[in-house]
Design a protein around this nucleic acid. Structure first.
Lengths: 168, 168
DNA sequence: GCCACCTCCTTGACTGCTCAAGTATATCCC
DNA sequence: GGGATATACTTGAGCAGTCAAGGAGGTGGC
């Protein structure tokens, strides 16, 4: 970034004429867009199933892992959280019986987080809701399949790792 | 979402073959991408200037408003926060002298949040840092101007309102 | 076998937001 | 002018995450 080509129309010292694509502006829009999206998911998932979007994301990741379980440290990595964030986030899900704690046979340090049968059932219902919210958010009359594919690709490039693949 | 055209390859009831663009997957990528971006901004802005990205965004919005000041309720609207979020977020900025509270002449209920001269100076420095972070995040070797314009447009369509225009 | 070091996980203290409730002021209608 | 209602803002309680510190268990060198 030290010697990137200076385009005259995005000169920081020259307010009022943002003719080119401004990376900072784009980043701020990203923040805004996510906030709005999260609110919608939280509202629907919370209202219908009593969970937040991040609860849902936890369950989704577990469901995609082999055996429906993951080491907590790997879950943290997958979710983009810290280990302590996972500990705190998992606690209520364990309390309501969607997830259990399982010890590892070969290493007493690790505790798996495992989806319970109830958890799997509830997740299926949540997934239905979440798909509807997402479909609604990217309403077909405003978003073509091409737009969506494009956005997804751009976000993937931006975001580092994927939210899990397959999603089925 | 009730009668959108059903594309067979994204049928929610048909797991395992996500051949089309999946809105839910895209939404989750959005969340991931934002989290990563926010962390980067927070790290740089915090390290160099002692403020968070949301502090910076507050200052930026104020600087773009006529007279460098806004009613707190309008600031909340612009930031996508609640009124109480603004109250809490502004408090530390007032403490360190970047923002002051100003009473409104015609309506004793409203309190403006106004950028101080110091605030404006410090913001200019932060803006420099923020632009670098953004430019770095959208590194030129991976992001063409077209990609950036496209992403910005897609996010704008998604996010409802803009983060402020002009950005200078 | 033991000591140093590393990994996995939890906990306490904090931040930054939320909602619900409360206060103060303005406005409308009679 | 005076009550009902609406608006602007603050405050208390709570939730979701962070970091820093610490406990418990595994691993490698000698």
């Amino acid at each position: 970034m030290t010697d990137r080509p200076e385009r005259p129309d995005t000169d920081p010292q020259h307010p009022g004429t943002p003719a080119g694509p401004d990376p900072l502006d784009t980043a701020l829009r990203l923040v805004r867009a996510q906030t709005a999206a999260v609110k919608r998911f939280d509202a629907s998932l919370g209202g219908l199933h009593g969970v937040s979007l991040s609860d849902f994301t936890v369950l989704l990741h577990l469901s995609q892992a082999p055996g429906g379980r993951m080491r907590r440290v790997d879950l943290a990595e997958a979710l983009g959280l810290t280990a302590s964030g996972v500990t705190r986030g998992l606690a209520p899900l364990e309390r309501i019986g969607l997830v259990t704690r399982e010890a590892a046979a070969r290493d007493a340090r690790v505790a798996y987080a495992a989806l319970t049968p109830t958890g799997r059932d509830r997740l299926a219902e949540m997934l239905h809701t979440a798909r509807q919210v997402a479909a609604d958010h990217f309403a077909a009359d405003r978003w073509s399949a091409e737009d969506l594919t494009l956005l997804s690709a751009l976000l993937t490039r931006l975001g580092g790792t994927a939210p899990g693949q397959g999603l089925g």
